[in-house]
Design a protein around this nucleic acid. Structure first.
Lengths: 138, 138
DNA sequence: ATCATTTTAGTACTTTAGTATGAGACCTAA
DNA sequence: TTAGGTCTCATACTAAAGTACTAAAATGAT
């Protein structure tokens, strides 16, 4: 919200500045009206593109982006998160162990801990929960 | 691609039209330069917003849309697809059976068939594959 | 009505997943 | 140095998942 207000304030200021430049250049007569209009058009086209880009960025970070803070809040450790990612990739405990060079037993421990921390009954449930919590890509 | 070319053509045409209007209004002296600049700024701001909006829209429909045709191509039946959806919701075979009012044995049959059709080793793998194939929401 | 497909369900079995518990190794902050 | 957390691994167990069949009932199109 604060960001939006800031952006619009800057926008209005820029508009006023452009008014001044436009008037000044017009009065001096050393610049064609086409040039001024072209500059203004380009600037605002850029502004329009930028505003939506930032909107999209904030949207995607809010919808598909990964919430690192939430991972910590849930008490999920680095290793556990790695395991979670491999689970969502469809790997078995054995395969995850081979990939991370640790035993299947250790993976089972990590998975059990993950299920508790994500309040999930199964690994498929954990995937669904993790997506809901936006801690893994969907 | 064709759409992009069309959009930019319209953009250039609009720019030329605005040049003419600007020059005309300027010569007639019945419109202030601020007004013209304001209009142009607004128009191009709108254009900038529109261009990014359409880009986002096409992106999301291409990434989150469900490909019904692909489901048929894979030979996945209606019932099997229902089971697939419940798997991705994190339910167990027993829970899916209860929800669809059929036995767990039947769910197992459906799941086995799904794994073959999706070329998956496990149900978690099936979820990942189904998302990759854009058969389920991700 | 017949053929093909789907849906349903079962048995018997193997494999994978998950729980509970204990314990050693490691690192870091108090 | 000790306390807390993470990471590791193991054993023993229960539960769930998955495979490989077989087969009956329902559905739907020709």
């Amino acid at each position: 919200m604060k960001k939006t207000i800031f952006v619009f304030s800057v926008l209005i200021l820029l508009l006023l500045v452009l008014f001044q430049i436009g008037e000044y250049a017009f009065l001096m007569g050393d610049t064609s009206i086409e040039f001024i209009i072209g500059i203004i058009a380009l600037v605002f086209l850029g502004i329009g593109l930028y505003i939506n880009r930032s909107r999209v960025t904030s949207d995607s970070s809010g919808k598909t982006g990964i919430d690192l803070k939430k991972i910590k809040d849930l008490g999920i450790s680095e290793r556990e998160y790695q395991v979670l990612l491999e689970i969502s990739n469809g790997l078995s405990n054995k395969e995850i162990g081979d990939k991370l060079y640790i035993s299947e037993s250790t993976i089972k421990t990590h998975v059990s801990n993950l299920l508790v921390k994500l309040d999930a009954k199964r690994r498929t449930h954990a995937i669904q929960k993790a997506k809901e919590l936006q801690i893994i890509a969907g």
